[in-house]
């Protein structure tokens, strides 16, 4: 589904990604862990199409297309979704209106007719129920005045509405209580199929009890320095990242 090769990226002349490799296939769940500042959100932003970064080397193939050449909106329309670590508040723009526009732009891109008002409202009801998002929140201004947890849930609600091929969840679990965590994980698991894939960025192995990954990767100083099965997450939580540093020095 997505193949990242030797990705190097700078921001304001500072190297952040330094030769990152990752391959995710359809049907898989990958977890990315790593210390603060390692470059996890940077990777997510670059994949989603944020323009502040300079890509100096490497390539990203998304279902046979050169992802880095695509406009942000085309990536979304082709099925890439990023649940933001810090979702922005947009006063005056209602969640529902903007989602209807987003769905219709995606449909137009695929040569389909716009969704009917009736089908759209049915979809809103179904998906807001899935993530237990209050219908009132669904129709309020995007994230405005939402609590941290509500913002995260709103991201998953949007994901459910847009049904992406590849979802990237950037610390969606941070700040969630255990109930919210279960709800979010349930949303992700319900949407999981053999045709789509998920990348979860997290600091906590707790999430991975609910969303069980096929692979766990350690992102450290701009590269994936270690990959392993789901047990690796437990080991990381117990031992921190220092032993990985030590391993790297040895190598």
């Amino acid at each position: 589904m997505i193949t990242i090769k030797n990705l190097h990226a700078n921001i304001e002349d500072k190297a952040i990604l330094k030769g990152l490799n990752l391959e995710v296939k359809a049907g898989e769940v990958h977890a990315i862990m790593g210390p603060n500042g390692a470059g996890k959100s940077t990777l997510a932003s670059i994949l989603a199409g944020k323009e502040d970064y300079e890509i100096t080397e490497g390539s990203v193939d998304f279902d046979g297309e050169d992802l880095l050449e695509m406009e942000t909106e085309d990536r979304a329309r082709e099925g890439l979704f990023l649940a933001f670590q810090y979702p922005v508040e947009i006063p005056g723009v209602s969640n529902i209106n903007f989602l209807r526009t987003a769905i219709n732009e995606k449909r137009e891109h695929k040569g389909e007719d716009p969704i009917s008002a009736k089908d759209f409202m049915a979809l809103v009801r179904e998906k807001s129920k899935l993530v237990e998002l209050d219908a009132k929140l669904a129709s309020r201004s995007v994230n405005e005045g939402f609590s941290g947890g509500e913002k995260k849930r709103n991201e998953i609600f949007q994901m459910a509405m847009l049904e992406p091929k590849l979802a990237i969840l950037d610390e969606t679990d941070s700040g969630l209580d255990i109930d919210a965590l279960r709800i979010v994980a349930n949303g992700v698991n319900t949407l999981k199929s053999k045709d789509n894939a998920t990348i979860v960025i997290t600091h906590y192995q707790r999430l991975l009890d609910y969303i069980v990954p096929d692979f766990v990767h350690v992102l450290y100083d701009g590269r994936i320095v270690k990959s392993g099965p789901k047990e690796l997450a437990l080991e990381l939580e117990e031992k921190g990242y220092d032993w990985i540093k030590a391993e790297m020095v040895e190598a």
Binding site: A48, G49, K50, E51, E71, T72, E73, R75, A76, R77, L82, F84, P87, V88, I90, V93, N97, F98, L99, T101, A102, I103, E105, K106, H109, V142, Q158, L162
Partner: peptide, 18 residues
């Protein structure tokens, strides 16, 4: 905000209009 809306599939023009 423009980036957020585009990352959901809105064109830049649609995001600005919104």
């Amino acid at each position: 905000a423009i980036y957020y809306l585009r990352a959901r599939g809105l064109s830049k023009k649609a995001a600005v209009q919104m």
